[in-house]
Nucleic acid binder design. Structure first.
Lengths: 237, 237
DNA sequence: CGGTTGTTTGAACTGATTCAATCTGTGTGG
DNA sequence: CCACACAGATTGAATCAGTTCAAACAACCG
């Protein structure tokens, strides 16, 4: 599909990221030239509160955005992630979720109407975004299986695998972008337990850690623990 | 939006159901006239196994379809439901989930290509299905919050509320279409616990039961327990 | 240096699972 | 109409995975 883009590279252009995600160059140019604001977001500051208008497109240039919902009692569930090159499409009405960057992120925000015009005019682009929507649906189903049926080890392992693939991490290592609290918010657990799971997995020889940086010593075993099969993340078939 | 269609009525036409879901009559006619097979499905018989081709459209005329995934060890997670009038759109490649009717169901199956032609030719129809896709995404997010953050009582209450709305049940009562095992498969629990939750809720005066038939005595309280807010299920805004 | 944010650890607790048995309702065939 | 089979619902007891609360520790940053 696409050549590997280093995870450490901070200044990839949106154009390049879209192209590496499978969009034709001339269409990526069109999106790149759409009227847009470029915003730098500080990590963990709420960018859009729950209930905000969905009348805008967002593309992640670098970093990670999360969609989240809060339950009544201080809890928070992260329901979706957008890595660099991925986007949040417009929705009619208001969003039922909030948007919060995970790491320091750069985002392009455009007008829903402009985006709609572009997509309507280019069936190939429509096709591209349809695929992304399908991919997001597949991810959502995977997460439902994760929170619904897998045990704590499986949940975290699956998330790590998915993250490694979506970040296009080097085969051997990656910098985990999440705090343990965020891993808990994604997998429906508590940070305390996530911590214990991470230590268990390290003890079991799945990877070794140094702060957020982990060296995956046994990728196959990690996939097995998380029953992870990456095919659902592929965009080109 | 739409007039109430009785849940007991078995022989509603797809056309009517689509219209009541918000599709213009002449477009509903077109879908109705598309080449299609009509199938009657027995409850709980797997209709499409996991990994089946996604090269077809399905519309539920009556009954309920479920998308499910099995974990390795006998467990099963239901990741999505389609009630009468709802459909499963084509996907490129193969499905990562299986399809299984909940109740006795009648389904229309058409060819992906035929469907695509229709949609491409009618922007209004495209708009309609886009909205349904967005609705399904909203439901999926709601389920993630459900399995991830709510306790067993909240999960079941939320499911009951959602089901009542999507079945267009009478305000006062409904026939629960699920076995307790299926409720467990949806909410990420065990059937034993679901049973206990149901008895608790009955004891708390949220509803009274007679077999699968429940009379909801306190709808507001049920909504509160499940922190259910039906706006995400609306199609027309 | 002090403040802040995130990680690690322990101990007590509890919500939910597991396993196993019983009960109930429904449909089938004799 | 009864006997039987079968699927689903109900119940109890033991167990355990994961939470809760609280405290200590580490890393980072102005």
């Amino acid at each position: 599909m696409s050549e590997r883009v280093s995870q450490s590279e901070e200044n990839v252009s949106l154009r390049d990221t879209l192209i590496s995600a499978g969009l034709a160059a001339h269409l990526a140019d069109l999106l790149d030239q759409m009227p847009q604001r470029r915003l730098k977001l500080d990590p963990r500051q709420i960018f859009r509160p729950e209930g905000f208008s969905g009348n805008e497109v967002m593309f992640v240039r670098s970093g990670i955005l999360s969609k989240f919902r809060s339950d009544g009692r201080g809890g928070r569930q992260i329901i979706s992630l957008r890595f660099a090159g991925e986007g949040i499409l417009p929705r009619r009405g208001s969003l039922r979720y909030g948007i919060r960057p995970i790491a320091r992120s750069e985002v392009l925000v455009g007008d829903a109407a402009d985006f709609q015009r572009l997509v309507d005019g280019h069936p190939e682009m429509q096709e591209f975004f349809l695929r992304l929507v399908e991919r997001n649906e597949a991810i959502c189903y995977e997460w439902l299986l994760n929170t619904g049926r897998r045990d704590c080890l499986g949940r975290v392992a699956h998330l790590l695998c998915e993250t490694a693939v979506r970040m296009r991490a080097e085969p051997s290592w990656m910098e985990i972008p999440f705090t343990q609290q965020e891993i808990a918010d994604i997998t429906g657990q508590t940070s305390v337990n996530v911590n214990r799971v991470l230590m268990d997995m390290e003890r079991d020889g799945l990877f070794s850690r140094n702060g957020r940086k982990i060296v995956i010593t046994d990728w196959d075993a990690l996939c097995r623990v998380g029953s992870f099969d990456p095919t659902y993340l592929a965009i080109d078939l």
